[in-house]
Design a protein around this nucleic acid. Structure first.
Lengths: 123, 123
DNA sequence: ACGCTTGTATGCCTTGACCAGACAAATTGT
DNA sequence: ACAATTTGTCTGGTCAAGGCATACAAGCGT
């Protein structure tokens, strides 16, 4: 059993990144704990209706970030990963992305209260 | 004079969208007010070191969203645009993106306090 | 040892970003 | 009025990346 992943083909950003993002979110929030087994690339691919290479690309990304350990014949193992010390430039980059997303949401008419609610829901 | 736009070629998402996002942020925050003239597509393109078509694509996007009025021989005029009533599905979509971005930031090691600070800075 | 499962590598096609340059409409100068 | 200039738009072309089908390699179970 893994995190239920939802794919939006009209999203604009690639499917493999959507998968990586959502699985990462599940791992960071500890909804899936270290030691657990994720779905195999083919399982998840079949579930999502995409090619297994697409899922494999997402898994490789997470493995490169230190979240997963991939092994042939075994599958994807969730590692215990402590948060790194990000450089200030990296933090600034996230700050920019956050500002832009909030601006886009407000431009779309999403009320500020709704945004706050979602934020508090995460932290 | 327009909003100072910064392009990140390694960002992964297309330049025209980066431009659109940043200009939109400037418009939503009212740092550029309705009635003002934006830089022409060629001016901004020269400034950023990209092709004028790239900027034009970004401007077209904003025009389609109702932010700008484009006219040949004139330029880009900032319109007065009231926030639409977004459907619940749209709000949910933004909520998802927001959660994912925050998860990614936390995964990168950005402290929660820094995130809160940036958020408050916008609202 | 054999077959099955699992991640990986290769090759191909399609899509989209970006660009160069030509075109069309509106303004400006004379 | 006319012509030149300015401005957004359109067309065609190149290239990188996403996604897929298929074949390969490594580990596990019987």
């Amino acid at each position: 059993m893994t995190a239920t992943v939802r794919i939006d083909l009209d999203s604009g950003d690639p499917v493999w990144r959507q998968i990586a993002d959502q699985v990462r979110a599940a791992l960071v929030s500890r909804r899936v704990k270290p030691g657990a087994q994720l779905a195999t690339v083919r399982e998840l691919a079949l579930d999502l209706g995409v090619n297994h290479n697409t899922v494999a690309e997402a898994y490789r990304q997470l493995a490169a970030e230190g979240f997963l350990q991939l092994e042939r014949g075994v599958g994807a193992l969730v590692l215990d990963r402590e948060a790194p010390r990000p450089p200030a430039a990296e933090q600034e980059r996230f700050a920019r992305r956050l500002k832009l997303l909030l601006a886009e949401a407000r431009a779309a008419g999403v009320p500020v209260a709704a945004l706050r609610k979602t934020i508090e829901e995460v932290l």
